[in-house]
Each structure stands twice: as C-alpha cells, then as structure tokens.
Design a protein around this nucleic acid. Sequence first.
DNA 1: GCGGCGTACTGTATCGATCCAGAAGGGTTC
DNA 2: GAACCCTTCTGGATCGATACAGTACGCCGC
Lengths: 354, 354
Amino acid sequence: MRPTLQTVADAIGVSRSTVSNAYSRPDQLSADLRDRILAAAAALGYAGPDPTARSLRKRRAGAIGMLFTASLSFAFTDPYAVGYLRGLAEAAEQARTGLLLLPLSIEDDAAAVAAVNEAVVDGFCVYCMPDWHPALDALAARGLPVVSGQRRSSDGPASAFVGIDEASATRAAGEHLMALGHRRVAVIGDYLSVAPTIGPALLSSPADVAYYTSRERLRGYQSAFAAAGVEWPTVTTVNVPGNCRDDGAAAAAHLLDRAPRPTAIAALSDIVALGVLDALRARGLQPGRDVSVVGFDDIPEAAAENLTTVHQPASERGRRSGELLLDPPADPADRTVVLPTRLVVRATTGPAPS
Amino acid sequence: MRPTLQTVADAIGVSRSTVSNAYSRPDQLSADLRDRILAAAAALGYAGPDPTARSLRKRRAGAIGMLFTASLSFAFTDPYAVGYLRGLAEAAEQARTGLLLLPLSIEDDAAAVAAVNEAVVDGFCVYCMPDWHPALDALAARGLPVVSGQRRSSDGPASAFVGIDEASATRAAGEHLMALGHRRVAVIGDYLSVAPTIGPALLSSPADVAYYTSRERLRGYQSAFAAAGVEWPTVTTVNVPGNCRDDGAAAAAHLLDRAPRPTAIAALSDIVALGVLDALRARGLQPGRDVSVVGFDDIPEAAAENLTTVHQPASERGRRSGELLLDPPADPADRTVVLPTRLVVRATTGPAPS
DNA sequence: GCGGCGTACTGTATCGATCCAGAAGGGTTC
DNA sequence: GAACCCTTCTGGATCGATACAGTACGCCGC
C-alpha cells in the first residue's frame, strides 16, 4: 500500500497533523523535527501529500478547465486557437495553475457533459462553443467562475466576458468590400446550417445561426452590405462542417463553379479563407483581381499569403481570459473586456471586376 | 453553502448512498426513486457528485498530466510540439480523459516540483525535459505511470518509452552532408551549454550534454562525421537558449560572420534551422549553394521553405504516448515504441562549395 | 409455514488530507 | 511564584463522496 501521512507519522511517533505541517506549513514545527519527518518520508517512499485529498480539503483544484470547439484535437490544428491557448497557458503559468483541456467529443454529448462534471478545476474558460451545447448548461450548473468569449442569455452572474466586438469587426470588412464596388458577395463559415455538411446554408437571417461567433460575424456583414444596398437574400451563404482549409476550398467550389460567380467571398476564419484561395488558384483565378477574398483572425499564414483579413489579438485574448478567471476583479464592470480588432488590407481584395 | 449528496438525501428522506447510486449506478435503485432524487437535486441546485471527492474515493483522477519543455506557453509556439499535443489530445479524447498541462516555470524549480506534486492526474507524459530537471525526480517519486520520450537512467519500471532513434536519425542527416563533401560543419541546438545564452558551446563530447534529445542527436552527427574523417573537435557547436527562430538566426550569425565560415550547418530543430535560413538571406547567401542547412522535425513550415530535414511523426508520437499511458500493455516489451524517421532532402542542402 | 432468493435501500467505514481548538512545556515578566 | 506568552505539537472534526456488508421485504416453491 502506498504510504500516507499517517504511515509517516507512525514511523517516527508524531501526529498526522505534524507531518502535514512539515509539508504545508514549515513554520509550525521545529526545523529539526521537520528534517526527521522528511527523512522518514523519503525512507518510506512517501512523495508528499496526495493532491486529490488536499484538493478536497482545501477546496481548491489548482487548475482551470478549458472548453473548446468540438473536438479537442481539432483545436491544435487551428493557429488561431493555438494562439489563444498560448495566452491562456501564459496566464495559468504565471498563477502557478494547471490547464486542463477537456475532451469534448462532438458526437457524444453525454460524454461532454460528463467531462465537465468530472473536471477537477477551479473555473472554466469557454471558447468557440455552439450556444446550444449541453456542456454549457452542465458548466453553469457547477457554479464555478466562467470566462467566456461568447455572450449567452443564460450566463450566470459568475460569468465574465473576454472577446471582441465580432459584428463591428466584420462590418469594417464588409464596408471595405462595398467600397471596392462588390455587389455579388458570398459568406462561408462554420455552424451556418444545422447539418454538418458542405453546402449552401439557406439562411433567412443571421439570427438563425445557433453559434455566437458565426452569428455575430454574419450580422456585421449583413449591416455593411445593407448599408450599400445589398440586401441579405441576395447574399449566398455556404456552410463548412469544420474550420479547415480543405473544407474552405470545397465550399468555395460551390460558389465558383456556377454562373454568375460572386465577385467577393468573405470567410469567417482565415483557415477557411486560405482554402478559398486554394480553390481560386486551382481554377486559374487571381485573388484580388478576379475574386476578392477576406478572412478573419489574422493568423501568421494570412500574412504569408497576403490575405486581407480582420486582425484580432489571439494570445492576448487567451491571456486576459486566464487573468480574469484566476483573479476576478471585484467590480462586475471590469468583468467584461472587449479587445480591439482591425481590418488588415492586403492583396486578396481589390476593385470589383466590371 | 453548496448542496452535497447529504443535502439531497435529507430533502427526500433517503440515504446518502442511494443518492450516490442515483448518479453513479442507476441500476441499483428503482427508476421512480431515481427520478425523484434527480428532481430534488435539480430543485436544490445540486449539480452532481463533487469531482474532487469522487476522485479521492475512486482513486482515479480522469486526467493525464503533461510535462513540457520549460515554459508551458512556449510549447504552443513550436509547431512540432503542437503536433505532439494534438496526438496526445486525440488519445485523451478517445479515452474520455482530460489533459492537464502543467505550468513548469523555467526559473523556479521549486514551483515546477510543486506543480508535479499537486497535479490531480492518473499518469504523466514527459516531453523534451532536460535530464537534470528536479520535476522529473518529483514525478518518479509519485509512482504514477509515466510515458517519456527520453530515456533516463533513473527511470522506474512503471516508465514507458515512445520516441524515435534520435541518434540514427541525425546520423542519416550527417551522412548526407558528408556525401555532399562538406567538411567544415557546425551544429546549433538548445541545452548544448549550461548557460542559457547564444554562443559557442565548447563541447568536448556530446556526452556532456545534459538533455537527452540534444545529446542523442549530437551523437548521431558525431558518428556520421567521424566516419568521414571529420573529428569532433573540428565541429563548431553553438547553443541557443530557446527553441525559436530568432535565436536560430542569432546563433547562425556567430558562424557566418567569421572566416572561414562552415559550409554546412545542422540545426537540432526546424524552428532553429528556419532562423539559420533567415540569417543566410540577410547576408545574401543562398541556402544549399553557399551554405547547406539541415533541420529536424519536418514541421509544415519546413516543406514551405524547402528545408532539408529529418521527418519524425509528431502527432503519432503524441497519440501513441497517450495510448500507452491510458492503456498500458501487460508485456513490458510492448512498453517501448520506437517510431520511424526519415531524411527528407529538399533544397537547402547541396554540394560543398569548392 | 419456512427456507431460499432477488431487489431495493441503509449505514458504517474509508479515501488522504487540512483545520482549528487546545494542551504541554519552557521562558519572561512583575 | 503566579500570570502570561510563545512555540511546538496533538487529536477530533471535516471536506464530499464511494464501497461493501447488511437489513428489510416481497415472492416463489414445496
């Protein structure tokens, strides 16, 4: 049997509490006794207080949980998500806190709920989860502090927000397209339709989208387009099941292989936008001349491929989220952080072809 | 006060055990009673059994710990590490297990040890840690299963290995350089000298390096060079404090700004090799013609920049590590997995200039 | 009518620590 | 030398659950 505090205590004839103090409160006992205790512990192969038991008694887990888009492994394929994670990890590291990534299998909601309920953490960060996901309800039920990047009507008072103004970010991008004279436009994004398939989303309104980030970004485009007289029903929306390059290319095919093709394509993420660029090149079309393309996020690859996009501070978003979670400000007003975004115009947007 | 099992039990006059069974073993009580219990729990705001207490009693944490190079946030800047993490996350997800990233501050060893001792996990994965790091001793003391990518003399019997044959991987790369006629060669890597500074490492032998991965990779180069008559003392070694592009460029400067400069530079990672390429370009030198450069890892950027490198399967390494940790094979022989590597010759190596 | 059996639920022990009120002992103060 | 303090250590209560042996009871067979 593995040794416990009691084992060590018995070995040298002191009380359990004293051994505990030897580890956790060295000022509570003489240096001499402490040395003897640690020596005895080493001899017995006792590695120090059991973290689980300690967590139970201290009511502190020493870790924060991270709830991520769909599949956990997927998070590591998106450079933007990696940037966010880096920031979050920085904050956790600073506070000497672990970072628990939760397995959220997309097919199995019950497993996701179980993951939330079994997580030994002091709080949660939520990032890019569809609004309807049952894990979010489970999370609210646990009553732990939550920092989210998406507002949700049912958010409790313990919930904080760190994010950007998604709608005004895409409004700027939309105005850019309108100013260039584009009138036949399309938008590609994930969670636009319920079914996880590549194809037209047939959205009567952005409000129908059940995923905060996509919904808000669509709203921004909608208002920019409307201001230039381009009404929503004339805008083609295409859904992608995953936020990845291949899906972006496949979705673009739906738009490019029909006439008349749109003169501008707005993707709700850079990864998807890069896929659109692939599709253009495959058809001998030049981005920015034949078809304009806008992304979102400004990941490193976007600069490398000269993609016009909306910049948002990925790692800072993660870092601020972590800080807010680990050290919540007393004033509720400080629990909402809106970070700045900016339109980065590069080579993939240009005047609409006449 | 937050409700507990007892609160719910008292509310409807059953025992604590029965409420526990309602959640964990539904077959142990009538469906009717179970419904009443869950209803009462919902009314009281009880979100289900406390994960910490459950972990203590069940002797299972439901998470695996990850010990990473130096700083946690740093891990997310290296595409190879991200690939490894993706694989590990995949395995964890499959097993419905969380992934706890531990904060290993590089300046503060005591904090790192504390992080290991306080981690509520069922096992650990170790990746890219210097051999001497005290956290590794703390880890061994905890007696939990460990899967490591580096062999260490003090590894316990519970320890498994998933990795590559580092030395033979670099031997292949070294032979490639020798076959191209290079005789004045240099190696850049991290942990080559004790001090975390950019500069010559002054290594009398690879055996002096206290970091498994770098040591083995150097050994491979040493043997390839020696076979071609290039003795170790004539090889220049340069240390980089961090595994990043800028450090690689700065280290290359030490080699390129003196005469005679080496005709080939081997970097122990792609990230550093890409920095070397930057330094070459900054001096108007052409990689593969004026100076040959070899990397290690074969990250996506390596292909994009046509870097000759050694491919190793990043995410598979992570995935196999996770699988081995979560489902340890009975036969100790199966606890060692050596994955294949392969030299990928691209444009940054060429015949030695005469 | 009684043993045997299965189902539904109870109650105590236990997981491995920390908290905290209090006791023992030595030294200081007046 | 009584009162007081400080340091050092103790022991019972507690954190919130699960394990497991045991009880109560209905039902079946004979």
